[in-house]
Structures are given as structure tokens and as C-alpha cells.
């Protein structure tokens, strides 16, 4: 299949007084339509930077990021930030509707969609709550609903379940899987959990310590549809062990 998203020799250096701080170095990979890609890597290796480049929030200092042949900022993205990043002056419902409002207005379909998403992320009854009154995990779930409401071309998730407890985390993982299997969006997701990556992804990318570059590009050939029980299968264990081994053999930064 034709790739939808291209990263070509992407290098990014942040200015910092003395020569600049290189976050990413010569990173190249493609993402096909409807593909689910997970990115793993040690803290500070440039994963968030990579997502911001893919969203067009940053332009790479070297190389190219192209979405369907155009600059990355042309894509309609749903971005879930590492922190929930809600607008404190908007209620839960208003936060979720924000992408629709910015895209030209909220109609009844939008409202129904929002209600369905609130149901999906388990926040029924909190529609009118202020973000200040939510727990960290609840806020993050609002952010996930907000990223899905406007039916984006590509979903960029920066450790979306980082603030959740293990149980909710697994449940949200399955929900994400369900959403993805129903809508088949292109997803790039940063995570720290190898088993989460193996369960969800078609491909797992592992980055080296800073400056981040591609260390491993592992296809996950587990059959779809995936279910929780696969976590205990032999193939799953083998893939998880391989990736774990690859990460362990990385040098310390």
C-alpha cells in the first residue's frame, strides 16, 4: 500500500545557546494508511518531538515530513498530549466539542457523537464538570475523546494512558483497539509499555537514546482482531521478549 505519512532523514535540533541540542538524528520511516504504529524509547530520546513533527507543530531542522505529499501541517490530526492539556474554562463537554467548534460549528450529529464518546471513555455524568474537578486519569480520558471527535485523518497519541492505573489502562487499551478496529484510523502512539505496544500495533518502532534514531522496526504479525487473551499466547511472549531484548541492548545515553 502507498504510505500516507513519510519521514525522510528527519533531524531535529533545538536551539540552546551552545551549538543546539539534537533531539532526533536521521530518522526515516513510512506509515501506511490504517496502520497502527507504536513508538518506544527511553525517556528524553525525542518521542514527543517526533509526534510534534508529525503533527506539523514543529518543522524539522533537517529532512522532510510529508503527509500525502504535502507538509505535515496540512493533515487533520487528533493529538493526545502527554499531559491532558484541557482548557480549564471549558466544561468536559465543551472541551470535547472544541475541535468541532474550531472546524466551523457543532450540529446535532456532533452532539450525539460527543455523547457517545463520553459514554465510551466512561465519563457519563461528568459532562458539565470543570477540568479542575477531575482526576488526572479522567482528564486524560477527556483528552482522548477530544482527539477523536472530529474524525481526524491521523491520530497521534503521546503516552495517552500514562496517567491511568493498570486496570483502567488495560481497559482503555482495549477500547482504543475497538475504536481502531471499527474506524481504521492511522495511529502513531508513543508508549512505555511493551505489552501494550505488541497488543495494539501493526509495527513497533524503537528509538535509541538521544539523539533519537531508529533502532528497531518490528512488524507485529499477530492476527486481527486482537483480544486481551492474546497477551498470554506464545507468539505474543516471543515478540515482547524480542523487543525487550532490543531495548536492553541499547546504550545508555
Amino acid at each position: 500500500m502507498e504510505p500516507i505519512l513519510l519521514c525522510r532523514h528527519v533531524t531535529h535540533t533545538f536551539p540552546d545557546g551552545n551549538g543546539g541540542l539534537q533531539a532526533l538524528n536521521d530518522l526515516s520511516f513510512d506509515v501506511c494508511p490504517q496502520e497502527f504504529v507504536c513508538v518506544l524509547g527511553p525517556s528524553g530520546c525525542g518521542k514527543t518531538t517526533l509526534l510534534r513533527l508529525l503533527a506539523g507543530l514543529l518543522s524539522p531542522t533537517g529532512g522532510q515530513v510529508l503527509f500525502q505529499g504535502q507538509p505535515a501541517s496540512a493533515a487533520r490530526t487528533g493529538f493526545v498530549f502527554q499531559s491532558a492539556n484541557l482548557m480549564p474554562w471549558r466544561t468536559v463537554l465543551q472541551n470535547i466539542l472544541l475541535p468541532l467548534e474550531l472546524a466551523g460549528g457543532v450540529d446535532d450529529t456532533g452532539r450525539r457523537e460527543a455523547a457517545a464518546l463520553i459514554e465510551l471513555v466512561g465519563l457519563s455524568g461528568f459532562e458539565q464538570a470543570w477540568p479542575a474537578d477531575l482526576s488526572g486519569g479522567m482528564a486524560q480520558r477527556v483528552a482522548i475523546a477530544r482527539a477523536l471527535i472530529h474524525d481526524p485523518d491521523i491520530l497521534l497519541l503521546d503516552e495517552p494512558f500514562g496517567a491511568l492505573d493498570a486496570l483502567t489502562r488495560d481497559r482503555m487499551g482495549s477500547e482504543l483497539l475497538r475504536i481502531w478496529q471499527a474506524q481504521r484510523k492511522t495511529v502513531v502512539m508513543v508508549t512505555h509499555s511493551i505489552s501494550e505496544a505488541v497488543l495494539l500495533a501493526d509495527r513497533v518502532l524503537v528509538l535509541t537514546p538521544r539523539p533519537g534514531t531508529l533502532a528497531v522496526d518490528q512488524k507485529i504479525a499477530l492476527p486481527r482482531p486482537r483480544v486481551e487473551e492474546m497477551r498470554y499466547s506464545a507468539d505474543f511472549g516471543r515478540l515482547a521478549r524480542e523487543i525487550k531484548g532490543a531495548i536492553s541492548s541499547l546504550p545508555f545515553s
Binding site: 510534534r52 501541517s73 490530526t77 493529538f79 498530549f81 492539556n85 482548557m87 474550531l102 472546524a103
Partner: peptide, 12 residues
Amino acid sequence: ESLRELVRSLHA
């Protein structure tokens, strides 16, 4: 800045 990035990612 993080909220500025949010609205920028939504093409405001």
C-alpha cells in the same frame, strides 16, 4: 504554550 499547540494542531 501547550494550549497554543493544541489550537494550532486543530488549525485554528
